[in-house]
Design a binder for these strands. Structure first.
Lengths: 343, 343
DNA sequence: CAAGATAACCAAAGCGCTTTGAGGCAATTA
DNA sequence: TAATTGCCTCAAAGCGCTTTGGTTATCTTG
């Protein structure tokens, strides 16, 4: 059932039927109702391909799922971010186009999506320092929103980000207030911009209290359970072990916890742990009472916000850039406590 | 730069340019080369919207990301499956359309995608017993491949699945061979078809050896760390605790491990654990030497296979259904050992 | 009551491709 | 030489919508 057939059945022109269904004013209300009823009855849905060609809009936004060519790691954040963004797209009649490409082909893919007219805009993930995707996208004039900022890029662009520096600053202060001075950092890979900012927050808090930073208790790696476990194990077995850990994710925090408990220590009593909790739906930090003390910011919400921003930008490209810095909550769980007295 | 402009620049008709670029034979090789060179030089990419309208094909496949209305859990399997499938789409010039919808609106979404002509086929995930999506899709004539089979559906349809029954049967036998008779099952939610099959495998293996099944050591819940921890804790604290666990995922296995170690027991010596390892990229079962003994099947590979199947089906809808049952490997890690002597 | 305004509808062009059905031309055959 | 055959190339139709620029009644208004 297409527009032509439907209009013939109704004895009207395609023009009128189209206008009626799209809510244009110059249609008699009685006629409109008749048309809407017939459309529903015949289960008519306008052909998306034709709409796209006729309007020149793709009614779709692109997300690139970058598959790291070297380590093959898929970003665990991705699924929840997508879930949030996708909700917004659905509500606004947009489709989400997902391209899975090797991370070194990412820029070419943006260019391709743009020149084929497959999308009206894109969202970029996993931002690195001096991320060259941002100037490239600005240059090609494809509307975009970045999930995370890129230090070193001067031009204005739209982004959604968590105040990572502040989150880790507060977490570190919280531990310092509890009397900890030997605080370890189990960070993500530090070519990611957010990881740099977190480290900065950590270092700033230490410096403000005159506590020296020790590279021996600062690790940086993929945010996996195993990597968290290894880093924490190494540090706990070394002389002068940390009494507290700052972990970059739920998974690395779980690894840290395992290292602690595996040594017969009790988390929250002997060793404190604070994680960054993205509120991933399948990695809940307890139900009700949180297990880990955490700085918390929902990545799903970030997805919703970024998607809405992008749709605004597409609707009116003259819109000034929007930037949204989310503050992470500091929530108190069972994994932190006063620093143990020196024995 | 569009086809018309390009053909004018070349002094040829759009027809010839189109045929040349699409590899039709009736074009002089010299002309073709000239055209291809010009296309590259002017960075010409045919407009996807126009191609879609003209050919009547969407050149896109749909994936539905079902967001459970009640528990809001996002399937952790999803990201890796998508990564695998997406590779195949990219290689074949297909786009992947992701719809995020409440799980009770899933069928309506398939119908919508089909009638708008937005996709040429879909892949369905998280199959339930008697899953009504399958007859619905067969009925509406939209090509699809199912990731997982649905017990109770008689009509033939294309699927990719892991031999879940066999995997859990073998794992159970392996534990029985090690002398365990008190084997707990920490299963996924049992309205999922794969969970039922796994339980069947477990029960069949027990029955074959004349070992009675005990509901007290069979749990079923979301496959999260916390849920695994709770189930294992409860069972370990009860009288006559299990000496071995069969866990449905890496995450629940991690929860089981925590419960074991939290009780001062050693995994692999005091209590054995076997997990089902989907080889999720951010939940690696060790690097090199596996931590957990596991039945292993890559969900990313399953994504690749399912995608290729779907593209075959789209290319020739008269194709007979394809069905592919993957066998899970049983890999030996450090989490299993002989049953401890009764003390 | 004529002229302008308004309401309701429509024919046709156009979006940028693919594809059908025809040529035109040189080479081959009778 | 005329007819036939391939080889290239092209004009034009068509995909299913939206949108422009009318047109025809019906109302107002001076």
């Amino acid at each position: 059932m297409n527009l032509k057939e439907l209009s013939q059945k109704l004895g009207l022109s395609p023009t009128t039927v189209s206008r009626a269904l799209n809510g244009y004013p110059e249609v008699n209300e009685a006629t409109r109702e008749r048309i809407v009823a017939a459309a529903k009855r015949h289960n008519y849905r306008p052909n998306a391909r034709a709409i796209r060609l006729a309007t020149g809009r793709a009614m779709a936004v692109g997300h690139i799922f970058p598959v790291a060519t070297k380590n093959e790691i898929v970003n665990p954040i991705f699924a929840d971010f997508i879930a949030g963004a996708g909700e917004v797209y659905s509500q606004n009649g947009y489709d989400m186009l997902l391209s899975v490409v090797a991370d070194d082909a990412e820029q070419a893919t943006y260019r391709d999506l743009k020149s084929r007219g497959a999308v009206d805009g894109v969202i970029i993930h996993a931002v690195r320092t001096f991320d060259d995707r941002i100037p490239a996208l600005l240059d090609m004039g494809l509307p975009f929103v970045s999930h995370g900022r890129a230090t070193g890029i001067e031009q204005p662009y739209s982004w959604v980000d968590v105040n990572n520096r502040r989150a880790f600053l507060r977490a570190t202060e919280f531990l310092l207030d509890l009397g900890h001075t030997r605080i370890a950092l189990v960070n993500g890979v530090e070519n990611m911009d957010f990881a740099i900012r977190r480290r900065t927050g950590y270092l700033d808090a230490l410096a403000a209290r005159g506590v020296g930073a020790d590279p021996a208790i600062m690790a940086t790696d993929e945010m996996t359970e195993l990597s968290g476990y290894r880093a924490a194990s190494r540090m706990l077995d070394a002389p002068n072990p940390p009494t507290a850990f700052l972990a970059a994710s739920m998974l690395s925090g779980m690894g840290v916890r395992r290292a602690i408990e595996g040594r017969g220590l009790k988390m929250g009593r002997d060793v404190s742990v604070i994680i960054f909790d993205d509120e991933l739906s399948y990695l809940r930090n307890g139900e009700g009472l949180p297990i880990f003390t955490a700085t918390r910011s929902s990545v799903r919400d970030a997805g919703r916000i970024a998607a809405q921003m992008l749709l605004d930008l597409i609707a009116d490209p003259e819109n000034t850039v929007q930037q949204r810095l989310l503050e992470a909550d500091l929530i108190i769980g069972q994994s932190t406590g006063p620093a143990p007295r020196r024995g």
